[in-house]
Design a protein around this nucleic acid. Structure first.
Length: 534
RNA sequence: GGGCCGUUAGCUCAGCUGGUAGAGCAGCAGACUCUUAAUCUGCGGGUCGCAGGUUCGAUCCCUGCACGGCUCACCA
């Protein structure tokens, strides 16, 4: 036998040699040295509790009762259902399964808290119900083990709905002890790295991820009912465009080609509109090679949708309706509480222009700023220079308006609010406003000071689009490595003709954060990006 | 990337001007046939994140590193 661990998992029949070459004898040392395993060392590295559980398992296996050999269990009911339908089920037999979360021995009777998908159900067991041998056997099981229980439903003297066990089967042995039953698993690092333990120990976490699924389904249903077609577009491509962000770089061996992970789905979805799909959406992961914090994970879920013959006003309506619908589905109300603040999702949301927002929250009236020159003087006067991504001399009025918005207004937008009419300089894929080519038909939705959606009347003039891309190329040269990459094929598609179109992106993780009252984006992503331990 | 903080038993956490560690839960042994953070008695369990340094002596002081949390910058 090779190692303690292996022997405990899978004891070979006596006399069966699993390793070593026929006719060649190998000493224990050779075998241990060969693959770096040493039985004594392996045993010594285990905690007392790990060792005891492995020994219990080995004993079962030696007796031919390997719990890992069990294949199925008929689960007639879940915990929540038994509690909900108690009147109907009282004294009826049920069959449940789940993880042992708590053991309470009271002399010759015991209580087990069994946890399944929906919660916990108490199991009452004694020698009268199970037989003396079986009862003694169950007492050797451990917290964390997964078991099946058959018995009848009853209510204890204290009023706890329980299953009175007639038959119990060990379905899976946990050879690792669970975290502490009352405090649970608290260490954030362990919670994210070992999410399975987080899910087992913290019911709130299970609830959040169930809600996540419901929210995503609600958004899809909302769009499917309105005849949107759901599509899938490439994640790998030679151009990462459609947003201002730094991409992840990877490489195709077959093509001997540098590829990027997508940062947005925009340009492919608009090609679908060119192709005549009329209403299209994609919900999926985008990847942005940027900072990681409480609101940003390098891979995150975004929905982008495009609707032909519509504009950004239609997108505003759609945005508030989708969010309100999702809130209703997730929480039962369109008014939610996020980190102690009441947020009202019911439409209509407040709408104000970026310029009005800067006037209201920053006291600066950009309507009276005539030129880029004047704007730059204003930026110096108001100390906005630090907010700018480029050197001041390269900044336009639009850049400075946006900087002022981000500095003064953004954090004030607590209730859901649409900020409309963005500067053309920072919106290269957006149609200009009729009568004011410096501004575009674009909005961003803000909730709790955070951007949650971004939408426009899509630019469909191929010649203007080409110019805008070339302007972005210049921005790149000026040091903005987040400027949009030129996608010539996309421009070609516009030459074929894209109908007037409204488009929108909604940050799904952020929406879910609000609707589950989660402080960090890592609390709504099952496996957030983490550095490896070593 | 910068700043601040953290890393001690399986888990949650204490640990005093530096003298190689404690509690609760969990585990083991025992008592108890309606408990539910059950209770009661007893007993085990530690590479104090890693590597150096100072010191007679380091969980504690210093330096470096790793991982994490918060925060600022960037971003959605």
């Amino acid at each position: 036998m090779k190692s303690y661990t292996h022997s405990a998992y899978n004891a070979p029949p006596p006399g069966c040699q699993r390793h070593g070459i026929e006719g060649v004898s190998m000493s224990q040392e050779d075998i241990a040295g060969e693959d770096g395993f040493d039985e004594e060392a392996a045993r010594a590295s285990l905690s007392e509790q790990q060792r005891i559980r492995r020994e219990k398992l080995a004993k079962l296996q030696a007796e031919g009762r390997d719990p890992f050999a069990v294949v199925t269990w008929n689960q007639s009911h879940h915990s929540a259902e038994i509690k909900e339908k108690f009147e109907e089920l009282e004294n009826k037999d049920v069959s449940v399964a789940g993880r042992v979360m708590s053991f309470r021995d009271i002399g010759k009777a015991s209580f087990i808290d069994l946890q399944d998908r929906d919660g916990r159900i108490q199991v009452y067991l004694n020698a009268d119900g199970l037989g003396a041998d079986a009862y003694a056997e169950v007492k050797t099981w451990d917290m964390g083990d997964i078991i099946g229980v058959e018995g009848y439903v009853f209510k204890t003297r204290r009023g706890e709905i329980s299953v009175h066990a007639k038959r119990m089967v060990l379905l899976t042995k946990a050879i690792e002890p669970l975290p502490e039953k009352f405090h649970g698993l608290k260490d954030p690092e362990q919670r994210y790295r070992r999410r399975y333990l987080d899910l087992v120990m913290n019911p709130q976490v299970m609830d959040t991820f169930k809600k996540r699924t419901r929210i995503i389904r609600a958004v899809r249903e909302y769009l499917d009912e309105r005849e949107y077609i759901e599509v899938e577009t490439p994640i790998l491509g030679t151009i990462a465009s459609g947003a201002a962000a730094r991409p992840f770089v990877t490489k195709s061996n077959a093509l001997n080609l540098q590829l990027y992970l997508r940062i947005a789905t925009e340009l492919y979805l608009k090609r679908c509109i060119v192709g005549g799909m009329e209403r299209v959406y994609e919900m999926g992961k985008d990847f942005r090679n940027e900072g990681i914090d409480i609101r940003h994970n390098p891979e995150f879920t975004m929905i982008e949708l495009y609707q032909a013959y519509a504009d950004y006003n239609d997108m505003m309506e759609l945005c508030e309706n989708i969010c309100a619908h999702a809130a209703q589905v997730a929480t039962g109300s369109t008014t939610i509480t996020y980190q102690g603040t009441e947020l009202r999702f019911a439409p209509p949301w407040r709408r104000l222009t970026m310029m009005d927002a800067v006037k209201e929250y920053g006291g600066i009236d950009f309507a009276s700023v005539a030129s880029d020159e004047d704007a730059r003087s204003l930026a110096v006067e108001k100390g906005l220079a630090d907010e700018l991504k480029k050197k001041l001399k390269d900044c336009t009025k639009g850049d400075i308006l946006n900087a002022a918005f981000e500095k003064y207004a953004e954090k004030e937008l607590i209730q859901p609010t649409f900020i409309i009419d963005y500067p053309a300089d920072i919106s290269p894929l957006t149609k200009q406003k009729p009568g004011d080519p410096s501004m575009t038909e674009r909005f961003e939705a803000f909730i709790y000071g955070r951007e949650i959606a971004n939408a426009y009347s899509e630019l469909n003039d191929p010649i203007v689009q080409d110019d805008r891309f070339r302007q972005q190329a210049k921005e790149r040269e000026l040091g903005d490595d987040e400027a949009y990459m030129l996608d010539e094929d996309f421009v070609s598609s516009l030459e074929v003709g894209m109908p007037p179109t409204g488009g929108m992106g909604i940050g799904i993780d952020r929406l879910i954060m609000f609707l589950t009252d989660s402080y960090s984006i890592r609390d709504v992503i099952l496996y957030p990006t983490m550095k490896p331990v070593n």
